[in-house]
Nucleic acid binder design. Structure first.
Length: 543
RNA sequence: GCGGGAGUAGCUCAGUGGUAGAGCACCACGUUGCCAACGUGGAUGUCGCGGGUUCGAACCCCGUCUCCCGCUCCA
């Protein structure tokens, strides 16, 4: 990890931004706690998002770049939902896999990714070979093919089945998984472990006497809480399409490799919007949200050079999506030229609402159709509730299309921290340049808005300073007071936690009623009357 | 999950079997009085956790947890 990242991690611990969860017990992988300053920073990130996306949204004007005016409301859904939600959303299938490991070469495979080629001679199943489904090599070949053909012999045949269904297929032929019929590692032909369940969703049991049948999951994303409440919001909130529903909340995923500080955590917070619109204008809305969300990060301080908007190419897109873009940031823990995802903006078509109406749709189908099981029945049954929208102006009934800007609150917080971390030089009391560490956080995000210092702790200065402190506190500003140590040291301490302004009360203040506001980034000092200092800080906070 | 490295004070780290250390940070007093590290004094550790070897373990051995790097995985 880069030196810069080490310094950031160290500062976060030292000054109380971030701690490892349960640290006194040795910690727990993939979980993090926000300290006194970190919680303020993250709250400010959340509040900036909620205010900019929801509360301050003007539903009666058309923003620049948008097709029309639109509404925005929020919800807060529960973390645990009906298990069927995850089956219809596709998460159950996607996040829930059986894996086998090779005991020799330590490779790990999804059971349904291993394809078994089974050679049957006239007397029944004789030998199997494995290969990786969808690998570049087209199926089994070379020596594997020769061995199979030999085993099948005259009049025999070779059939294929995925490893998850292989034991059942053998059983149909009255054969056991033994000898040459034991599937081996497709890479090195080593011995494979029995299939083991991998669940990327956190499983829990509902009810004090609950059993496995009462299993439920902690949500792996907040989005589904919005989709399942689509009708409720429509019926209660006097909203009309186009409109968006926003939500901030925790999600949980059993990440295989939690790493890179808080970047990949097992418990994380999302800030998501599901924006519902008419299919015909959906492309325009997609572009609008993509560009608007990108702008949001820039306005809060992420630099153009370290931020990119990456459109997914065709191969990367889900079949039902006609566009997905990631907002990515060049985190210091990544190699030069690599970026980490902050937010994904996806055009999801009508996949989600239809899946919750009709049942889980097959992502690979085009046009989307219901996913069926081996017997031809719906794989996962939907709610059966009508989630269509009726436009009473046009008398049109349709399933809205969805644009989903889905952001990580912890990732955004980390990006703002990384961007803000700066080492520069500032003069000491001799006028010599000295190293200075500061967080150049946008004032909206800064945990502490201002620090109030009496230049010396006598001659009535602390009293004046405390008066200002109390006034600013009652105005709702998070400010701190300190009379400890040399003034230069106090400035440096505040620089390090990103406090944008320091207010210093000197001996003249007692007679002229004016104080000095010192700017974190420019070191500029401005003299303002005590009576105006609170409003001046509020003015500067508004930008 | 595999391989490598690491874990000692709040932070950065030294300490190869014999009383637990440094710098910075922190607290008190003094000094200075608008840009850090001035003086004096002070507090701070189950040396990640558990077990073992030993008269004696931060140090050697075993296990375990966490962090970092490289694989693997990545909706």
């Amino acid at each position: 990890m880069s030196n810069k990242m080490d310094s950031i991690v160290s500062l976060c611990k030292r000054r109380g931004f971030l701690f490892q969860s349960s640290e006194i017990y040795g910690g727990i992988q993939g979980f993090w706690d926000y300290g006194p300053l970190g919680v303020e920073l993250k709250r400010n990130v959340r509040e900036a998002w909620w205010r900019d996306m929801i509360n301050a949204h003007d539903a009666y004007s058309t923003p620049e770049g948008a097709p029309s005016a639109f509404g925005m409301v929020g919800i807060e859904a529960s973390i645990i939902m009906h298990p069927q939600v995850w089956k219809c959303s596709g998460h159950y299938d996607l996040f829930h896999d059986f894996m086998v490991d090779c005991k020799e070469c330590k490779s790990r495979f999804r059971v349904d990714h291993i394809q078994v080629a089974l050679a049957s001679s006239t007397s029944g199943p004789a030998r199997c070979e494995t290969y990786i489904h969808n690998s570049d090599e087209a199926g089994y070949s070379g020596s594997k093919k020769k061995r199979l053909e030999k085993a099948a012999g005259e009049g025999g045949s070779v059939s294929e089945v995925s490893l998850d269904r292989y034991p059942a297929v053998l059983a149909e032929h009255g054969a056991d998984v033994a000898g040459d019929l034991i599937p081996r590692c497709p890479v090195c032909t080593g011995e494979l472990t029995a299939p083991r369940e991998f669940n990327l969703m956190f499983k829990t049991i509902v009810g004090a006497l609950g059993t496995e049948e009462d299993a439920a999951f902690l949500r792996p994303e907040t989005a589904q809480g919005i989709f399942v409440n689509f009708k409720n919001v429509l019926d209660s909130a006097r909203v009309k399409i186009p409109f968006g529903i926003g939500q901030i909340g925790k999600s949980f995923r059993n990440e295989i490799t939690p790493r890179n500080f808080t970047f990949r955590s097992r418990e994380f917070e999302q800030m998501e919007i599901e924006f519902f619109c008419h299919p015909e204008t959906s492309q325009h809305w997609y572009k609008y949200w993509r560009d608007r969300r990108m702008k949001w990060y820039k306005e809060l301080g992420l630099s153009e050079e370290r931020l990119i908007l990456r459109e997914h190419d065709k191969a990367e897109l889900s079949h039902y999506s006609t566009g997905t873009a990631d907002v990515e940031y060049a985190f210091p823990f990544l190699p030069e030229g690599e970026y980490g995802e902050l937010e994904g903006i996806a055009h999801r078509g009508d996949f989600d609402l239809r899946s919750h109406m009709e049942g889980k749709l097959d992502e690979k189908s085009d046009p989307l159709v219901l996913q069926l099981d081996a017997d031809g029945n719906p794989k996962w049954k939907g709610s059966g509730k009508d989630l269509q929208y009726f436009d009473d102006q046009t008398r049109e009934r349709f399933t809205p299309h969805v644009i989903e800007p889905s952001a990580g609150a912890d990732r955004a917080t980390l990006a703002f921290l990384c961007e803000a971390y700066t080492e520069d030089e500032a003069p000491d009391d001799q006028g010599n340049l000295q190293k200075r560490t500061l967080l150049k956080l946008n004032p909206r995000l800064a945990p502490v808005k201002a620090a109030i210092f009496p230049l010396i702790k006598k001659e009535g200065l602390p009293e004046v300073a405390l008066g200002i402190y109390r006034e600013m506190k009652s105005a709702g500003l998070n400010v701190v007071y300190s009379q400890q140590g040399a003034i230069g040291r106090r400035y440096r301490q505040q620089d390090e936690i990103g406090t944008p302004w320091c207010i210093t009360i000197d001996v003249d203040s007692v007679t002229d009623g004016a104080v000095t506001i010192r700017d974190r980034d420019t070191l500029e000092q401005t003299r303002v009357p005590v009576s105006e200092v609170t409003s001046e800080i509020q003015r500067r906070l508004r930008g």
